[in-house]
Simulated scan of single mutants.
Amino acid sequence: MDWKNNLVEDDAGVRDVLTSSRRVAVLGIRSETHAHKPAYGVPHFLQQHGYDIVPVSVHGERGPILGQPTYSAVADVPGAVDVVEVFRRAEDIDAHVDDLLAKKPRAVWFQLGIRNDGAAERLARAGIRVVQDRCMKVELMKVLQEQASFRPGAPS
């Protein structure tokens, strides 16, 4: 299989990642003291919509975030992870690729504004699906809106 097929660049692929995932490790999550930042607000929104959020702090925060224990590396998270959502600057992602490869989640999602094609290629070549430069909250809101507007038997 061509590794480029693991680069998720269309809406259908994004929807598939979201709807087939439940456990999301958030690399670079922020604590409640930074509730105004997307690195807290997005995982909080996901948690409110049924996702199991696993905090992975790179900012030195200790203790629970969103009521969950915090880990210092993705590979330290017990059990399987469906998606790792990444809140790191593009130039900082390379330092985390080996950690991501060690955990081997089904997908890695670089948040809106974050693109690192070299890291994405390494992950994709390892069989991990990669979404770049998209917001999980915005994309989930689209999926929820689609689901709410779909009513079986309704006139189209």
Rank of each mutant, 00 (worst) to 15 (best):
D76W: 01
D82N: 07
R89H: 13
N6T: 06
Y40G: 06
H49S: 11
M136F: 01
K103W: 10
G79I: 00
L112H: 13
R30H: 09
Q147P: 00
R115H: 02
L66W: 09
F45W: 09
G60K: 06
I93M: 12
R122G: 07
G28V: 07
G60V: 09
E85I: 07
S31A: 15
G63Q: 02
F45P: 05
G50E: 13
K103P: 08
Y51C: 10
A35S: 15
A124P: 10
M136K: 00
V84P: 12
L101S: 06
L7T: 02
R106D: 15
R22I: 02
P55A: 00
E121W: 10
R15M: 14
V14T: 13
N116L: 09
D2L: 07
A75R: 15
Q68A: 15
L112Q: 14
H36M: 04
V86T: 07
G63L: 13
R30V: 00
L100F: 05
R106I: 07
L100D: 03
A35N: 10
D2P: 14
I29M: 02
H34R: 04
G28F: 01
I53S: 01
A25F: 00
V131H: 03
P105K: 15
F45I: 07
V58E: 00
R89E: 00
Q68N: 06
R62C: 04
F87S: 10
A120G: 14
L140D: 06
A95N: 11
V8L: 04
A35I: 04
E32G: 02
G28P: 08
S149T: 10
I65A: 06
M141F: 03
L18Q: 08
K142P: 01
A154F: 14
D94P: 09
Y40A: 02
V8M: 05
E91I: 04
P78N: 11
G113Y: 08
G79Y: 06
R106E: 14
A148W: 03
P64Q: 11
I128Y: 11
Q47R: 13
V143H: 04
P43H: 10
V108P: 12
K4F: 03
G113E: 05
H59V: 05
F45Q: 03
V84Y: 13
D117Y: 05
Q68F: 00
H96M: 12
D76F: 03
E85F: 13
I53E: 00
Q48I: 03
N116Q: 10
N116M: 05
T19C: 05
E91L: 04
E32H: 07
P69T: 06
A120T: 09
D52I: 12
V84G: 12
S20F: 02
L101M: 08
L140Y: 13
G13C: 09
R134W: 10
N6V: 08
